[in-house]
């Protein structure tokens, strides 16, 4: 247990670092460019495992390019909420990409928001999209919004408790600090607490990004849709923004998950150009592995009934809670 004075000493002493700033720019660029590729990679892995040829891992980029050239359609009866929501979703996703330690732990935006603020930003994006779904005034839009909000509401406890489990050992809820403490103390990753938190967070990521078994991103059956149902009325550049932003969210969350538990290679305030490049490569590799695992897992999963989802989330909450108590009662060797 850390004593009181140590907590005072642990006051975040982040200053502005040029390396951090460069890293932040780099990671935003990387995520923006790479997110569609991650989606493409996952689809490709899945296709191969299912015995199909697949469209290739560049296909999402091609789709985006095509969508950006399509005519915008603004349906009758919708309001400014419908037109603005994709922008908000994209903006929050970009901001998260800048804050979260993907390539470097020294992002100058780290102080702007901690873990809980990031979670809040994610939710802002979700809310924007649900409102857009409701704004269309179609049964599907409302249905998707209703389900999305329900899931988002129920996943919230898991996120915060898992976040608590991560923040407590680090003494801070700022993501940079959490990852740095993992770098400083690699052994902590092997504790039961960390393992439990990891499982809880995986469920969170699945739920937040609408992956199986919570939602099926590739479904075309309206009644089973959640995320897709909300964006049914979108087309053109706005749909492209929505898809892109969703990809960014998935990528960032995977990267964050990877860095929280396996922070090897991540750059810090003192890293030079080489360090940043190492960080970039490392995170790309980690995301790649995670994406492959996720895609492989999805092959073997069916979508849960909507009313079984709460059970999954309750289970993950319990695991998160156990992670917290474990981190208290079974402190890491340090």
């Amino acid at each position: 247990m850390s004593g009181g004075t140590e907590v005072y000493a642990a006051q975040a002493a982040d200053g502005f670092s040029a390396s951090g700033a460069a890293g932040a720019v780099l990671q935003v660029a990387a995520v923006v460019a790479g997110a569609p590729l991650v989606i493409g990679w996952m689809r490709q892995v899945r296709a191969r495992l299912e015995g199909r040829a697949g469209a290739g891992w560049l296909q999402p980029w091609r789709d985006l390019r095509k969508l950006f050239a399509k005519q915008d359609v603004i349906p009758r009866g919708t309001t400014r909420v419908f037109t603005t929501a994709p922008l908000v979703l994209a903006a929050t996703s970009l901001l998260i990409a800048a804050i979260v330690p993907v390539v470097t732990t020294a992002s100058p935006l780290d102080e702007m928001g901690d873990l809980f603020a990031v979670v809040g930003l994610l939710l802002v994006g979700t809310v924007a999209l649900t409102l857009a779904g409701l704004d269309t005034g179609t049964a599907f839009g409302g249905m998707g919004a209703s389900r999305e909000v329900t899931i988002a509401a129920l996943v919230e406890p898991t996120i915060l408790v898992a976040g608590l489990a991560l923040s407590v050992p680090a003494g801070s809820s700022n993501l940079g600090a959490i990852v740095e403490s993992a770098v400083a103390d690699p052994g902590a990753v092997a504790t039961p607490a960390a393992a439990l938190a990891f499982i809880a967070l995986i469920v969170v990521v699945l739920a937040e990004t609408g992956r199986l078994p919570v939602d099926n991103p590739s479904t075309h059956l309206e009644l089973t849709m959640v995320h897709e149902a909300m964006v049914l009325e979108y087309t053109g550049a706005r749909l492209a923004l929505v898809e892109w932003a969703s990809a960014i969210r998935l990528t960032v969350l995977l990267a964050l998950l990877a860095n929280l538990f396996v922070p090897w290679g991540i750059a810090d305030a003192g890293s030079g150009v080489a360090g940043l490049l190492v960080g970039l490569v490392a995170v790309a590799a980690k995301v790649c592995v995670l994406a492959t695992l996720l895609a492989a897992g999805e092959v073997f999963l069916a979508k849960l009934r909507l009313f079984r989802v709460p059970e999954l989330l309750a289970g993950s909450f319990l695991i998160g809670l156990l992670a917290v108590t474990a981190s208290y009662f079974l402190p890491s060797p340090s």
Binding site: V7, A10, Q11, A12, V88, A91, T92, L95, A98, I99, L109, E111, M112, G113, D114, F116, A117, L121, V124, G171, S172, S173, N174, A177
Partner: peptide, 14 residues
């Protein structure tokens, strides 16, 4: 404690 957050900057960021 070491938590930090800036609602104003978040708004600017968004």
């Amino acid at each position: 404690t070491s938590g930090a957050m800036s609602p104003g900057l978040l708004a600017v960021g968004v």
